[in-house]
Design a protein around this nucleic acid. Structure first.
Length: 441
RNA sequence: CGGGGUGUGGCUCAGUUUGGUUAGAGCACCGGUUUUGGGAACCGGGGGUCGGAGGUUCGAAUCCUCUCACCCCGACCA
C-alpha cells in the first residue's frame, strides 16, 4: 500500500475527548473515529489490525474443532422471554420495535439464539459435543461507555458456545477452549493472566477471565507471587494468617489486598489492574433448562444440554494491546496484529534513485507475502518519521540520501529503536528475516 | 441515574468574568516557490455564526431559560 493513497488522517494532537493512552493513539494514528459515545468507525489501518486479530481467533477456534457461524444481530424478544432475560437484562439491552410493534433487541450476547438453534438442529447425542462460534458486532447500552474501544456500546466480539452431553464432557470442552484462549492471547503479543471470576449476568458455575495487565484496566487482579493462584478482586480469596495453606476464607468485596496470604500456598498476594479481554464459562444447564433445550441420549431419553460459553472482546483486545505496547512516539504493534509488517520511509521519493529502489524493495517484499506500507508522500522527513512511529508498524526501512551514498538503507525496529544499515542487495532477504524473527516473538 | 466538567472551522485552543464594529491563533487543508535524516520556510487562499431552541437588549459567542451532545468520578460488562 502506498501511504499517499492510504486513508489515514493522522493527528498531531490528541482530541480532547480521549483520556487513556489507547484511545488517544487509536485516534491519532487514524485507526478509528468516533461516531457517538462508545460507537466507532474503523479506518483502514484499524480495520486491518481487527482482521488480524480475528484471523488468529479463527485459526485457534477452528483448530479445536469449533465451527464458525454467523447469527443475526437483530433478535426477536420471544427467545429472551423464554430464558427470562428479557426482563433481567434491563436497559443495557438496546431494544426496538418493528413496524408491527413487535419487540426486538440488538443482541448483547447470543445464548438464546444459539441454544434455540441447537435444540432444533442438534437433536441427537451423536451430534454432540458441538461447539459453535461467531465473530460479530454486539450491542450493549452501557451505563457509561468510555475509554474508546475499551468500553463501547457497539463492539466486536467472538462468542463461542459448546453443547455437551454432561458435566464431564463440558469440562473437556471448557479445558480445550481455555488452552485455545491462552494461545490466542499469547499470539497477539499480550501479557495476560487467567483469573478466577464471577459469572455475573451470564450465569453458570465455573469461570475464568483473561486479564491483560495494564494500568488503564477497570478490574483489579489479585495474584500470588509464588503459585498460579490469580483471581478477580471480586471473587478473590485469602487465608487467615496461621491457617494452613488450602484453608481459605471467602473474602468479601475489597477484603483482599496486597500482601495478604495466598489461599493456596504460603506465598503472598499482589494486585494489579487488568483489562478483561476474554472470559470462559461453564454454564451448565441454566439456559437449556430455562428454554427446554434437550437432546435425545442413547436410551432415547430427553436430556438438557450441558453448556459452556466463551467470549473474547476482539475490538477491546486491540485497545488492550496498545495499552501494553506504546511509547512517547506512538503505538508499537506486535507483529502478529500489526496493520502492516514493514513500512518503507522514502525521504525523497521524487528522486529517481530513491523511487526506483523503494519500488523494487516494495515489490520484492510483496512477493514474499510481507505486507508493506510505502511512505511515498511528499512530506518532510520529520513528518514521515513521526507518522511511522505513531502508526507503529514493527519494522521501518528508511531510504535516504545519507545511507544511500554508501549503498545502504537503514532498518529500524520500532520496539527497540535498534537501527542497522543494510546493503541494498541483501535488503529483501534481511528484512524478511527480521519479520519472521519478530513474528516468532 | 447521582456528582463534576466541556461545547467556538477537520484538530488543539483563546475570546465569555466586565455584551459593542467584518470572531481570532496554531496545526491541518488548497495553489505556488524553495526545501526534505526527526512533526520545514515564505507568499497567496478556502473554510466557522460560536451545540440547538427560545428570551432579554439598540446590540449576544458573551446575560437568562430550556434542551441536546460529549468527557471525567461512581454502580454494570467482552
Amino acid at each position: 500500500m502506498r501511504f499517499s493513497r492510504l486513508f489515514a488522517p493522522t493527528l498531531k494532537e490528541s482530541p480532547a475527548e480521549a483520556e487513556v493512552i489507547s484511545h488517544k493513539l487509536l485516534l491519532r494514528a487514524a485507526m478509528i473515529r468516533k461516531v457517538a459515545a462508545g460507537i466507532y468507525t474503523f479506518l483502514p489501518l484499524g480495520n486491518r489490525t481487527l482482521k488480524k486479530i480475528e484471523k488468529i481467533v479463527r485459526e485457534e477456534m477452528d483448530g479445536v474443532g469449533a465451527q464458525e457461524i454467523l447469527m443475526s444481530a437483530l433478535q426477536p424478544s420471544d427467545l429472551w422471554m423464554k430464558s427470562g432475560r428479557w426482563d433481567q437484562y434491563g436497559p443495557e439491552m438496546m431494544r426496538l420495535k418493528d413496524r408491527h410493534n413487535r419487540d426486538f433487541a440488538l443482541g448483547p450476547t447470543h445464548e438464546e439464539l444459539v441454544t434455540d438453534l441447537a435444540m432444533k438442529e442438534a437433536r441427537s447425542y451423536r451430534q454432540l459435543p458441538l461447539t459453535l462460534y461467531q465473530i460479530q458486532v454486539k450491542f450493549r447500552d452501557e451505563i457509561r461507555p468510555r475509554f474508546g474501544l475499551l468500553r463501547g456500546r457497539e463492539f466486536i466480539m467472538k462468542d463461542a458456545y459448546s453443547f455437551n452431553l454432561d458435566q464431564d464432557d463440558l469440562e473437556k470442552s471448557y479445558d480445550t477452549m481455555f488452552h485455545a484462549y491462552n494461545r490466542i492471547f499469547s499470539r497477539c503479543g499480550l501479557e495476560f493472566r487467567a483469573v478466577d471470576a464471577d459469572t455475573g449476568l451470564i450465569g453458570g458455575n465455573v469461570s475464568k477471565e483473561f486479564m491483560v495487565l495494564a494500568d488503564a484496566g477497570e478490574d483489579t487482579v489479585v495474584y500470588c507471587d509464588t503459585c498460579d493462584y490469580a483471581a478477580n478482586l471480586e471473587v478473590a480469596k485469602t487465608r487467615t494468617v496461621d491457617a494452613p495453606a488450602g484453608e481459605t476464607d471467602d473474602a468479601g468485596e475489597h477484603a483482599v489486598s496486597d500482601g495478604d496470604p495466598c489461599p493456596e500456598c504460603d506465598g503472598l498476594l499482589k494486585s494489579a489492574k487488568g483489562i478483561e479481554v476474554g472470559q470462559v464459562f461453564q454454564l451448565g444447564v441454566k439456559y437449556s433448562e430455562a428454554m427446554g433445550a434437550t437432546y435425545i441420549d442413547e436410551n432415547g431419553d430427553l436430556k438438557p444440554y450441558v453448556m459452556g460459553c466463551y467470549g473474547i472482546g476482539v475490538s477491546r483486545l486491540m485497545a488492550a494491546a496498545i495499552e501494553q505496547h506504546n511509547d512517547e512516539g506512538g503505538i508499537i504493534w506486535p507483529m502478529a496484529i500489526a496493520p502492516y509488517h514493514v513500512e518503507i520511509v522514502v525521504l525523497n521519493y521524487d528522486r529517481d534513485e530513491q523511487r526506483e529502489l523503494a519500488d523494487d524493495l516494495y515489490n520484492g517484499l510483496d512477493e514474499r507475502d510481507i505486507e508493506v506500507l510505502l511512505d511515498d508522500r511528499v512530506e518532510s522527513a520529520g513528518k514521515k518519521f513521526a507518522d511511522a512511529d505513531l502508526i507503529g508498524i514493527p519494522v521501518q526501512v528508511v531510504i535516504g540520501a545519507r545511507t544511500l551514498k554508501s549503498g545502504n538503507i537503514e532498518v529500524k525496529i520500532r520496539e527497540t529503536g535498534e537501527r542497522r544499515d543494510v546493503q541494498l542487495e541483501q535488503a529483501v532477504e534481511l528484512i524478511a528475516d527480521v519479520v519472521i524473527e519478530l513474528t516468532a516473538g
